[in-house]
Design a protein around this nucleic acid. Sequence first.
DNA 1: ACATCTTTGCAAATGATTTGCAAGTATAAA
DNA 2: TTTATACTTGCAAATCATTTGCAAAGATGT
Lengths: 139, 139
Amino acid sequence: MEKCKADNLLKITNTVKTEARETILHAVLDSERPMSANELHLMVKNRGIDLATVYRAMKLFTEKGLVRPVHADSGLTFYEKSCEHNPPHAHFICENCGGIECLKPYGFDESAFFIKLGQQKEVSSVELILKGRCSSCAS
Amino acid sequence: MEKCKADNLLKITNTVKTEARETILHAVLDSERPMSANELHLMVKNRGIDLATVYRAMKLFTEKGLVRPVHADSGLTFYEKSCEHNPPHAHFICENCGGIECLKPYGFDESAFFIKLGQQKEVSSVELILKGRCSSCAS
DNA sequence: ACATCTTTGCAAATGATTTGCAAGTATAAA
DNA sequence: TTTATACTTGCAAATCATTTGCAAAGATGT
Ligand SMILES: [Mn+2]
Ligand SMILES: [Mn+2]
Ligand SMILES: [Zn+2]
Ligand SMILES: [Zn+2]
């Protein structure tokens, strides 16, 4: 219960709790879609939190496994919450507007597939990104 | 025959042929692994070709379908030749040394898989990147 | 409260990629 | 060939996301 609450997540990952981190983590948890550092900053700057702090938090949260970075080839990095309710999945990025969407889980045992792809290698993570035109840009 | 020769590729894609472009395209075609703009520049700077020109060529060649960009999440972009002898495939990037390797083709009809993933969307390209430790860094 | 280690805002630095511009080059018409 | 026009390139400066140095502020254990 309440496993995905900011407060609890910081505690179980042994992360020093500060106002900035709690605020930023809340912003990530509240977002349905992956967010860029800039977007997150827009949500928290009114509390005097700096963009550099957002970046530092993303680095820390990524190491702690609380967020996953999604690297758009535009050079932008988006961050999404990584908890049991949000398992790894592919992403769709619109070439026209740059918007990002999460795709539904693969629906089969993808880990076996990806590990087979990696063959004799130690695979620690996978990023699968499809590009195209999103529904709003298509019309 | 000779479908993957620089000269011919420029012609069949209606690309104005210049010394810089021919030289740069040769460098790409000669490379087994995807190359960064910087690496390509190292190979051609002795002929007075500027890094900016390499970037402009990569942009053009990508549009013409002669090369494919591979976006490492380090922020670096690698470029690999895109001809019938080198169909799309996944890539492996070493988290330790940053090196990139091409993986063997999937061995099944991946296009069907990726299109199903994209569902109701228009998918124009796919990037599948595995990360981990390369064989040399593992030892 | 004290000592110590960590975190943060701010400003400046990075590093890959892009762009403005003036000079050089390709292409086709004359 | 010349000439006119459009495209390409080197160079330097600009962008833009992200990182970092530093001094002040905050967290933690005593
Ligand atoms: Mn997602
Ligand atoms: Mn490859
Ligand atoms: Zn769109
Ligand atoms: Zn390596």
